[in-house]
């Protein structure tokens, strides 16, 4: 049975309207609702289902970030994860923390925890990078099953359906492997109150990138973060004829 590591990132909640800071250094995060990255919820759900089907023996959730990152680890524990690891990265270091750093941290923890499967969300909805799974797989020299919408567990391999540009693709990956979860892999459960209470007793180990020997010095310099160009709302038209007229005017028909 697999020992599964899942990556969980704390991000601004998907329903919150983002505000750019006036000094253009980033977006406003203080006093803003945060949640687990939705794609990571799908990753956690998939791991928990594997455990329920006795395909996984233990699930470990890892989050890299400031103290509040523990909130999303608790959510993962309430969903059925066994234990959490919080890798503390805060302040300026967190501002420039990127998938290259996180993938090295996940690779080290995978070796330490003797995990043989990693599942993460395909992208985080804050930086939209879509890199962590691929880079973790490279760091470990493991196969990567990206954008997974279906996973069938075999003994020594997994068969994965991937969402690609033209439709769907099927691949077989030898285990151990890294998987990135796409939207339609599953529908994550809500944590129930009894499970939230139980999760409070589950262990969270705290460490730093330094403890793992991972250098998190910045690879990029953020020059500016700005509002996108605003699109002005146009006209509400009375009927289809008016629309046909406008389309003709615009040279579309």
């Amino acid at each position: 049975m697999a020992r599964v590591l899942v990556g969980v990132k704390r991000v601004i909640d998907y329903a919150v309207k983002i505000r750019v800071k006036p000094d253009k250094t980033g977006v406003v995060t203080d006093g803003v609702k945060h949640s687990m990255n939705p794609f990571d919820e799908i990753a956690v759900e998939e791991a928990v289902r594997m455990k329920e089907k006795k395909l996984a023996s233990e699930i470990i959730a890892v989050s890299c970030g400031p103290t509040q990152a523990q909130d999303v680890i608790r959510t993962a524990l309430a969903m059925g994860v066994d234990k959490g690891i919080h890798v503390e990265v805060s302040g300026a270091e967190y501002e420039t923390l990127q998938p290259i750093h996180v993938s090295k941290i996940l690779a080290k923890l995978t070796e330490k925890e003797k995990a043989d499967m990693i599942i993460v969300g395909k992208q985080a909805i804050d930086d939209d990078s879509n890199q962590t799974a691929q880079m973790t797989a490279a760091a470990l020299d493991w196969p990567q099953a990206t954008f997974a919408s279906k996973i069938e567990n075999g003994d020594k391999e997994i068969t994965v359906t991937r969402e690609v540009d033209g439709g769907l693709e099927t691949i077989k990956c030898k285990l151990p492997a890294v998987i990135s979860a796409d939207l339609r892999l599953n529908e994550p459960r809500y944590a129930t109150l009894p499970n939230i209470m139980k999760a409070k007793k589950k262990p969270i180990t705290k460490m730093t990138p330094k403890d793992l020997g991972v250098d998190v010095s910045p690879r990029i310099t953020v020059v500016s973060v700005e509002d996108p160009p605003v699109r002005q709302a146009g006209a509400i038209l009375p009927d289809v004829d008016a629309l046909v007229g406008k389309l003709k005017e615009g040279g579309h028909i």
Binding site: K17, V27, D126, T221, S224, E226, D227
Partner: peptide
Amino acid sequence: IYAGNAIQTMKAN
């Protein structure tokens, strides 16, 4: 970034 709700300019080092 943020689904197009912010535009980031960055220097890759």
